Computed example of a mutant assay.
Amino acid sequence: MHIVMTSAGLGRIEDGAVAVLDAPYPDAAAVIEATGSLDALAGARVVRRIPLDDAAPELRAPVPRPRALWGVGLNYHSKAERTGRPIPDEPVLYLAAPASVCGPGAGVRIPAAQTAEMDYEAEIAVVIGRTLDRAAERECWPAVAAVTAANDLTARDVMRRTAAPVLAKSFPGFTPLGASLLGRDGIADPDAIGVRCRVGGEPRQDSSSADMIFPIPELLARISRYAALRPGDVVLTGTPAGTGQDRGDFLRPGDTVRVEIDGVLPLTTRIRT
């Protein structure tokens, strides 16, 4: 199932339109926390249809305040090769502030007093549907509710200065999510999800989950050894090579970043002063 959050409520994408639903949930996260998946929306009554081409201004973050927001610092072979860093034996994990989440089309301000190196990171975001606590790898993909696109914005100089990912990634708006959620059953292979990024229309990143150091099920299992993952949690799964850090070219006011994840509506973010 392909779900969006609009200003009028939850919607299904069907027949080239957003079908706004009569559903007793404020957002997709609430559906997942209550039921473990998006399936409860399959039979919901349609109250309004918005042509998909006209829907962009109506779209909101489908998971606006995750219970927990996890990330991994180095999870693509291409990124390790580009930066000259060794392949880690364990994932480099961190938590970011859920208040950093914003929706598709948002304008995100550069916190100029704190950073001169605001960077983009196109990522596959995984939304947890069932609790994972010291889970086996084989249990993890079936516990995923959906995937979406994320732009894991990072203040690189803050990271160097403080050695604290939570500070470098938690500024307001620094975790755009959306524009839609694709239910797990719509994903043929978790090891073949494409991830791409454009800045101002220029291709910057182009890879897939096949290049991950820790594939999605293994990454979730490893996190669950230390902390239980709960329904509604979001896990950002790392970014491939091609970031501003790799190019020595960081974001500026007026830039537009477009993140594309296979099967999900594109996530666009505007950078402003």
Results as ranks from 00 to 15, higher is better:
residue 101 V to M: 10
residue 154 T to M: 08
residue 121 E to Q: 09
residue 228 A to Y: 00
residue 148 T to S: 07
residue 7 S to T: 15
residue 92 V to A: 09
residue 73 G to P: 02
residue 38 L to F: 09
residue 19 A to T: 02
residue 40 A to R: 08
residue 4 V to H: 02
residue 118 M to L: 15
residue 95 L to Q: 10
residue 63 V to R: 07
residue 25 Y to W: 14
residue 204 R to W: 14
residue 104 P to C: 11
residue 212 M to F: 11
residue 40 A to K: 00
residue 223 I to A: 06
residue 273 T to V: 12
residue 183 G to L: 10
residue 1 M to W: 03
residue 90 E to L: 15
residue 131 T to M: 09
residue 186 G to Y: 05
residue 169 K to Y: 08
residue 165 P to W: 10
residue 112 A to C: 05
residue 184 R to G: 07
residue 3 I to C: 02
residue 25 Y to M: 04
residue 176 P to Q: 09
residue 220 L to I: 08
residue 69 L to M: 09
residue 161 R to I: 06
residue 137 E to P: 04
residue 208 S to V: 15
residue 71 G to E: 07
residue 132 L to K: 00
residue 177 L to A: 04
residue 5 M to Y: 04
residue 58 E to N: 00
residue 10 L to V: 03
residue 189 D to L: 08
residue 54 D to G: 01
residue 52 L to Q: 02
residue 124 I to E: 03
residue 83 T to S: 12
residue 32 I to S: 07
residue 1 M to Q: 01
residue 245 Q to E: 15
residue 42 A to T: 13
residue 211 D to R: 13
residue 73 G to T: 04
residue 156 R to C: 03
residue 58 E to G: 11
residue 52 L to M: 13
residue 259 V to H: 00
residue 111 P to M: 14
residue 264 V to N: 01
residue 204 R to E: 12
residue 239 T to G: 04
residue 228 A to N: 00
residue 263 G to W: 15
residue 41 L to N: 02
residue 200 G to A: 07
residue 142 P to A: 12
residue 94 Y to N: 09
residue 4 V to G: 03
residue 76 Y to M: 13
residue 222 R to H: 06
residue 183 G to S: 14
residue 212 M to K: 04
residue 244 G to W: 13
residue 90 E to H: 15
residue 178 G to D: 14
residue 204 R to H: 11
residue 26 P to S: 03
residue 257 V to K: 05
residue 113 A to F: 03
residue 109 R to H: 12
residue 30 A to F: 05
residue 72 V to D: 00
residue 259 V to Y: 02
residue 220 L to M: 11
residue 152 D to R: 08
residue 33 E to V: 12
residue 146 A to Y: 04
residue 49 R to M: 07
residue 193 I to V: 15
residue 28 A to T: 03
residue 222 R to F: 12
residue 252 R to C: 09
residue 95 L to N: 00
residue 198 R to F: 12
residue 167 L to M: 13
residue 147 V to P: 05
residue 35 T to V: 06
residue 233 D to M: 13
residue 140 C to Q: 03
residue 234 V to R: 01
residue 256 T to G: 00
residue 131 T to Q: 09
residue 221 A to T: 11
residue 6 T to E: 03
residue 133 D to W: 02
residue 87 I to Y: 06
residue 142 P to C: 10
residue 89 D to I: 13
residue 163 A to Q: 09
residue 176 P to I: 10
residue 123 E to N: 06
residue 125 A to I: 13
residue 40 A to D: 06
residue 142 P to D: 12
residue 20 V to F: 06
residue 68 A to V: 07
residue 223 I to N: 01
residue 223 I to L: 05
residue 130 R to F: 11
residue 112 A to F: 08
residue 130 R to M: 12
residue 92 V to C: 07
residue 141 W to P: 01
residue 46 V to H: 05
residue 57 P to T: 11
